[in-house]
Simulated assay, not measured.
Amino acid sequence: MSMIRIDHALLVEIGLGELPEELRQDIYSTIELRVGERLSAGMTDAQMAEFEKIIDSGDDAGATAWLTANAPDYRQIVATTFDELKAEIASQAEEILRGVDEA
């Protein structure tokens, strides 16, 4: 299911390569949360429960198959959300790093 790259290379690309590890995890979590929120916005409660069950089981192939069947535009949603958040974080990179230096 991995269409997006959430790793150290991404942080370097958006100007946060020097971010301490604990803050890197916050960035990764924010990206995953924002993409998940956008995907879930178009799902019913029943669909969310079904999808969460698949995700919790660790079945990546099953999750991809489920998304393909139930949210055919999920790839575009993921890509758009990821690009928006990446640009948002990149625009704040200097400020984020200044906050780290001051801490």
Score class of each variant (00 low, 15 high):
92 Q>E: 14
23 L>G: 03
84 E>L: 12
83 D>A: 15
24 R>F: 05
9 A>S: 14
16 L>M: 15
13 E>G: 04
38 R>K: 14
8 H>N: 14
24 R>W: 00
8 H>A: 13
13 E>D: 15
37 E>C: 02
56 D>Y: 03
42 G>W: 02
37 E>N: 14
68 T>Y: 02
79 A>Y: 02
35 V>W: 02
91 S>W: 01
6 I>P: 09
25 Q>G: 00
37 E>D: 12
39 L>H: 09
15 G>F: 07
11 L>R: 10
97 L>C: 00
44 T>M: 06
2 S>I: 07
46 A>R: 08
20 P>F: 06
38 R>F: 01
5 R>F: 02
5 R>S: 11
67 L>V: 08
28 Y>K: 06
35 V>Q: 03
31 I>C: 04
72 P>S: 13
66 W>G: 05
62 G>K: 11
67 L>C: 14
9 A>L: 12
49 A>C: 01
97 L>Y: 02
38 R>S: 13
10 L>S: 08
26 D>K: 12
1 M>Q: 09
12 V>M: 06
37 E>I: 03
78 V>H: 03
50 E>F: 01
63 A>I: 07
71 A>Y: 02
3 M>D: 09
70 N>C: 04
93 A>K: 07
103 A>E: 09
47 Q>R: 01
87 A>I: 00
76 Q>S: 11
81 T>P: 03
20 P>C: 07
57 S>H: 05
69 A>F: 05
61 A>Q: 12
88 E>S: 11
3 M>K: 08
28 Y>T: 04
86 K>E: 14
48 M>H: 04
77 I>M: 07
83 D>H: 04
46 A>T: 12
32 E>W: 03
50 E>M: 02
23 L>Y: 15
1 M>K: 10
34 R>Q: 10
47 Q>M: 10
30 T>R: 12
18 E>S: 14
41 A>N: 08
52 E>Q: 13
14 I>Q: 09
98 R>M: 09
28 Y>W: 12
26 D>P: 00
80 T>P: 02
79 A>P: 01
28 Y>E: 13
11 L>P: 11
55 I>T: 13
35 V>R: 05
41 A>H: 09
24 R>D: 01
84 E>P: 00
23 L>P: 01
32 E>I: 12
70 N>E: 06
74 Y>F: 14
99 G>I: 03
98 R>F: 06
39 L>V: 11
24 R>A: 08
95 E>S: 14
83 D>V: 02
54 I>M: 12
45 D>I: 00
68 T>R: 15
6 I>M: 13
102 E>R: 15
25 Q>V: 11
92 Q>M: 13
63 A>T: 06
102 E>H: 07
9 A>K: 13
20 P>E: 05
48 M>Y: 01
76 Q>D: 13
59 D>Q: 08
90 A>C: 05
61 A>I: 05
44 T>N: 04
45 D>V: 06
14 I>A: 10
50 E>G: 03
